[in-house]
């Protein structure tokens, strides 16, 4: 297993030398959404606290670093951590309110959606943040400004983000906190009865998850060169983030990554082959059908299924 992982990593490291700009872009989005999915996974997968407002953290992170870069010439390399911290603060507020007042299940989901919407509306009305038009970043190709004239750099940054999130989540998974989170997910009342500080653990999870997602916001802004409240804080982005861990297997380390490696190529292939004819939207129907098929075949996610398959074979042999 370890060798397979190292092999995969080696392949990913040398891959850019063989890929054109287009495939690099595809991989960049695979890594990036896997990264965001992993950040979500920490709270939603391991802790069972489903957030449908994670786009808010992307937006806060992206807006913070972009605003600092445009107004104070602060490099987004530093700004991305400031953005992460800002997102973590928002996460703390949402977490405190939600967990302190014992919101669970649908009520917590609604709270996260509400906060994302509030952020979207507030930013739409803040003059300094470009209002509803948003912020536009000048393309200069200056590395200090988090811009590169070659997609390969973005590739390695996105890969680095994905691996870093994986490392952090792996550490959490093995720590006491990971065990607490799983216990809370399975039965919060029982875990509390056993002495788990459910409030503190969940709060820590949402703060960390928000921080990581916020850091990703800077990448989002500097790869797409503009931020609009409707896209950066919108529900579609939140859904995009959640889909990966759900399809790949939420609450597993490899889930978001596998999910991203399944979904992004699926979307891209359906786009490349079914979006050409006169009928617009066919590719979305194809993508949707494939998505339904994936969820039907792997109801608990692709990774648990694969793991079961590998173990089953070994057991049989």
């Amino acid at each position: 297993m370890r060798w397979a992982a190292l092999g995969a990593l080696a392949v990913l490291l040398v891959l850019p030398n063989f890929l054109g700009s287009y495939l690099l872009t595809v991989f960049i989005f695979i890594f990036f959404y896997a990264y965001l999915g992993q950040a979500w996974n920490l709270l939603g997968g391991y802790g069972g606290q489903i957030s449908l407002g994670h786009a808010a953290f992307v937006g806060i992170g992206g807006y913070t670093s972009t605003y600092l870069a445009m107004t104070y010439k602060l490099s987004p390399w530093i700004g991305m951590f400031v953005g992460g911290a800002a997102a973590a603060c928002l996460g703390a507020v949402i977490g405190y309110l939600g967990f302190r007042f014992g919101l669970r299940g649908f009520y917590f989901i609604l709270l996260t959606v509400a906060f994302a919407e509030i952020c979207r509306l507030v930013v739409s009305h803040v003059e300094a943040l470009g209002g509803a038009l948003g912020l536009f970043i000048t393309f200069s190709g200056d590395p200090w400004q988090f811009q590169f004239s070659d997609n390969r750099y973005y590739y390695y940054i996105a890969l680095g983000l994905m691996l870093a999130a994986m490392g952090i989540v792996a550490l959490v998974e093995r720590s006491r906190m990971g065990a607490y989170l799983a216990a809370i997910r399975e039965d919060e009342d029982a875990s509390e009865a056993l002495g788990v500080n459910a409030f503190g653990t969940k709060l820590a999870a949402i703060v960390l998850s928000a921080f990581l997602t916020g850091v990703g916001g800077t990448f989002y802004a500097n790869y797409l060169f503009s931020l609009q409240p409707n896209t950066a804080f919108g529900i579609p982005l939140s859904v995009e983030i959640i889909l990966r861990p759900i399809v790949g297997g939420s609450g597993t380390l490899m889930g978001p990554i596998l999910g991203s490696f399944i979904l992004s190529p699926l979307a891209e292939v359906s786009r490349a082959y079914f979006a050409k004819g006169g009928l617009s939207g066919v590719h979305l129907i194809v993508y949707g059908s494939l998505l339904i098929a994936v969820v039907l075949f792997f109801p608990r996610g692709a990774y648990p299924y694969l793991r079961g398959l590998v173990r089953g074979r070994r057991g049989g042999a």
Binding site: S21, Y22, T25, F29, T231, P236, E268, R271, A275, L284
Partner: peptide, 18 residues
């Protein structure tokens, strides 16, 4: 088709050039 999403717009542009 950008699907009304900026990330898709960027990827599609790359593909069309390819």
């Amino acid at each position: 088709d950008s699907e009304t999403k900026p990330d898709v717009a960027r990827t599609v542009a790359e593909r069309l050039i390819n």
